[in-house]
């Protein structure tokens, strides 16, 4: 049967193709991640993927929806990967599983599945974990080159699944506060920016190691732009606004406010700019709306990082802006052909 009515032609494209390209674009970031932090992240990715697919299948079954098209569309995998990449790579297994379950079951399927979720599922999962298990969420491993002790893959597996460390090692030996966290605490102790930044965990652009991963995400983002999976509006508005606020305040008081490059290349800023904030389902659709949405995330991220209670504000910034999407869309309708503005 050909199409019921014209057009009878269609471009060779599909939802699963878009999702596959997003996954592909994440590969450089994952590779950099493994190189910097070790292969523990692969375990998280696998855990999240399996959890996402199984929970998606169960929910589809319960909701009486066809399994094949929705499991193969790849959207659950994208959510799983984004969440896993946002979590600490040595997080206990149940943290990954609980987060993914919440993202898929509540944030996605209970709202109606693919295309119907008003909030970014990965960020909902992340926010729930951050509020519920703050300690586990802040246990980040130090980059390999700074770590006092290097864990083998087997040791990492033991730690992830059993919280068992090789004898003689403590948690503090393998984990450290993140640079954003350190910055916040140190600033509270009235240390100067230059002193803080002198610590080894801070790199040339952002944070040691983290900046390499961020650079790899940027590379993936360029690929997505080239493939026209995403448009430039959200990343440019988000990163631009973040950089603008950071440089403005940095110029006023360089001792209290970190510079723009540090903000761009630390935390989840790059991941968010190209992979999270660009989620079409929970974002606005008009070009102007995308600019407002991106800029809003930029402002909120900077505000939360600078004055908020959490070291990184990307997840909350995205969720808060998700709430505004219908309003943004309604007020940024472009001028239709043949109409006055």
């Amino acid at each position: 049967m050909m199409a019921m009515a014209s057009p009878y032609l269609s471009e060779q494209t599909s939802v699963s193709m878009i999702m596959r390209k997003v996954l592909l674009a994440l590969v450089p970031g994952i590779a950099a991640y493994v190189w910097v932090y070790g292969s523990g992240i692969l375990v998280s990715l696998l855990l999240a993927s399996v959890t996402a697919l199984v929970s998606e299948a169960v929910m589809l079954k319960l909701r009486g929806r066809p399994l094949r098209p929705f499991l193969l569309d790849g959207s659950a995998l994208v959510t799983a990967w984004l969440l896993a990449l946002a979590l600490p790579p040595i997080a206990p297994w149940w943290l990954v599983v609980v987060g993914t379950l919440f993202a898929i079951v509540v944030a996605k399927q209970l709202y109606g599945g693919l295309g119907y979720n008003p909030f970014n599922p990965a960020m909902v999962g992340y926010a729930v974990l951050l509020i519920s298990f703050p300690v586990a969420m802040t246990q980040w491993p130090a980059p390999l080159e700074l770590a006092q002790a290097k864990l083998s893959l087997l040791d990492q597996l033991r730690y992830i699944f059993g919280r068992v460390l090789p004898s003689g090692l403590t948690v503090d030996a393998i984990s450290s506060a993140t640079p954003l966290d350190t910055l916040k605490t140190q600033l509270k102790l009235h240390h100067g920016m230059a002193d803080i930044m002198a610590a080894p965990m801070f790199g040339t652009l952002g944070t040691k190691g983290g900046e390499i991963v961020a650079g790899a995400y940027l590379l993936g983002g360029v690929y997505l732009l080239w493939q026209r999976i995403i448009t430039w509006h959200v990343p440019v508005a988000f990163l631009g606004m973040l950089a603008l606020l950071a440089s403005g305040c940095h110029l006023i008081d360089a001792d209290r406010y970190a510079g723009p490059l540090f903000h761009l290349f630390s935390g989840a800023a790059m991941l968010c700019a190209f992979f999270i904030a660009t989620d079409p389902v929970s974002g606005p659709t008009t070009p102007k709306g995308k600019l407002i949405f991106g800029a809003g995330i930029g402002i909120l991220t900077w505000v939360i990082r600078t004055w908020g209670g959490y070291p990184d504000g990307v997840a909350f910034a995205v969720l808060l802006m998700n709430i505004c999407v219908p309003l943004i869309d309604a007020y940024t309708q472009p001028r239709v052909f043949g109409h006055e503005k």
Partner: peptide
């Protein structure tokens, strides 16, 4: 004219809006 696969839900990607010659918001 290959047969069309079954429609999936709209993911609001706004590609339709990008190509609309009337500058409408098809989604």
């Amino acid at each position: 004219f290959p047969p069309q696969p079954l429609p999936m839900p709209c993911i609001r990607c706004a590609r339709c809006a990008d190509v609309c010659p009337a500058n409408l918001q098809p989604q």
